[in-house]
Nucleic acid binder design. Structure first.
Lengths: 232, 232
DNA sequence: CGTGCGCTTGACATTGATCAAAAACAGTGG
DNA sequence: CCACTGTTTTTGATCAATGTCAAGCGCACG
C-alpha cells in the first residue's frame, strides 16, 4: 500500500454536518450535501485508503473515482467506478475497507461520517436514504459479479461499455468517454490490459464500435449488436 | 425461468408485521422477527424468483438458500448463499431482481415487505438496522467479487471453504458441512463442476483437507496452509 | 435389482495470461 | 517547432489454466 496522505486523513470543515445535527431532522440529504465542502482531487490521488479511519462520507461531483481493494500479492481489484452523484465511504465500520482513487481529475463533496450517522439515528428519512443508496450499490456490485464471474472477455467488455453509457450521462448517446486507463478497466473486469486492448480492437474490426486515436473515446456504432454480444 | 409457484407468491399471515406497525416503533427488529411466521422450504424449492412481486422479507432460520441470477443463455450465477440469521429479499424495487432457492431443506421466517418499509419510515432505528444489514451484504458481495474476479481455481475454492467455516457455525471448527451440490459451488465461484471437483481432490492429495465419501463433509486438516493458498 | 443423480477422472480444445517489443502519445526543455 | 523521456496502448508469439466432452463410479431410492 502506498504511504500517500489521503484526503480523508486531512482535517477539514464540514459546516452542514455540524449545523444540522438535531436541529433540522427533516432536511433532505440533498439539501445537506448541497452546502458541504467541495474538494478537488488530482488524477491518481487517493480519496481514502484501506485501513484509514472513516472520517468522512463523500459524494462525487465531477470525474470518476475507482473503488478498489488490494490483494496481498499486490494485484488490484476494482470493485466499482463512482460517477457524479454516487456516494462514497458509507459503511458500518470505523475504518475504510476499500481504497478510493481518482482515475482522472475529480471533485468530491465531503462531510463528517460521524455526524451523518448521528443524524440518521434520529431521522428515519435520512436512514432510509442511506439504506436505498447502499441497496443500489449492492445491486450494481451484484451485476458486476454476474459479468465478471462467468463471461468471456468480449461479453465483459461489451457489458462494461453499455454500463458506462448508462451511468455516465445520456442513456442513448452514441459516444462514451473512457475516463480511465486500460489497466483500470482490466482490474474492474478481471482481465489483463492486453486482453482489454485486443477485445476493443476486435469489436472495432467487427464494426460494432469505433475507438478514437488515443483510445479515450469510444463510439457505439451498433449498440444493439453490442448488447447482443454482452449477453445481458 | 421455471414456472414454479414460489413461496413469496403465496399469501400468508404476517402477524407481527401487522401488529407492530406504528404502535411500538422502538421495538427491535429481532423482536419483530421473533414472532413472524416460519415456513419450511424443501430442497430445491424456490423462496422467490426474479420478477416476482416483492411481497415479503425473509430471515433464514435453518439450512442454506442460494441467491442467484439467471443469465439469458441459461447460465446461472449464484450471488451468495444465505445462512441462518441472514435477511433475504431486501431492496428498493417492488419486484425481486434475484431468485432464491434452497440448496437443502430449510426454514425461513417471513413477513410483509410493505409493512416493514412502512415501519422503517417512522423508525430510524429500524431503518438503520436495514442499512447495516445491507452494508454487510454489500461487503460480502464485494469480497466474493474479489475472489471470483482474478483468482485461480485453488484460491477460489480455498477461500470458499474458509468463508464457509466462518459463516456456518463455529469459527475455528475443523469440519465444514457442504449443504450444497458441486454445481452450486461452481456457480458461486464461476468455475465448472469438474474444476471444483478436481480442485477439491488436489487439495485432498496435498493433505490440506479431507473429503468424506459422498463429498458433503470437508475436514480442514491444515487451515493455515489453506488460508495461505486462498491468498486472502 | 435397476434407474437416476451427483461426483470423479481422463483426454483434448480453447481462452486468456504471460512475455516481449514496437508504436502512439503527453510532457518537458531546448 | 523539434528532440527526448516516460507512460500508455497496441500487437505478436507462446504457454498454462480452465472449459468441454465423454465415460465410469457410488449412492439413494423405488
Amino acid at each position: 500500500m502506498l504511504a500517500v496522505q489521503t484526503l480523508d486523513a486531512r482535517p477539514f470543515q464540514t459546516p452542514l454536518g455540524r449545523l444540522s445535527r438535531g436541529e433540522a431532522p427533516q432536511r433532505s440529504l440533498e439539501d445537506r450535501l448541497a452546502h458541504a465542502t467541495v474538494r478537488k482531487i488530482e488524477s491518481k490521488e487517493h480519496v481514502f485508503c484501506e485501513g484509514d479511519p472513516r472520517l468522512h462520507v463523500f459524494r462525487v461531483e465531477e470525474g470518476v473515482i475507482a473503488i478498489y481493494k488490494t490483494l496481498c500479492d499486490g494485484r488490484r481489484r476494482i470493485i466499482d467506478f463512482a460517477y457524479p452523484g454516487d456516494l462514497l465511504g458509507l459503511g458500518v465500520l470505523d475504518e475504510h475497507i476499500l481504497s478510493a482513487q481518482a482515475t482522472s481529475a475529480a471533485k468530491v463533496r465531503c462531510f463528517s461520517a460521524a455526524s451523518l450517522e448521528a443524524m440518521a439515528e434520529n431521522d428515519a428519512d435520512l436512514a432510509l436514504k442511506l439504506y436505498k443508496s447502499v441497496c443500489q450499490e449492492l445491486s450494481a456490485t451484484r451485476s458486476l459479479l454476474v459479468t465478471v464471474g462467468q463471461r468471456s472477455a468480449v461479453e465483459r467488455v461489451a457489458a462494461f461499455l453499455l454500463g458506462l453509457r448508462r451511468r455516465s450521462g445520456d442513456e442513448a448517446g452514441e459516444t462514451v468517454k473512457l475516463a480511465m486507463r486500460r489497466s483500470d478497466i482490466a482490474d474492474l473486469l478481471g482481465l489483463t490490459i492486453e486482453t482489454v486492448s485486443r477485445t476493443l480492437t476486435k469489436l472495432r474490426t467487427m464494426g460494432v464500435i469505433d475507438v478514437e486515436l488515443g483510445g479515450t473515446t469510444v463510439t457505439l456504432r451498433d449498440a444493439a449488436r453490442l448488447a447482443d454480444l454482452a449477453n445481458e
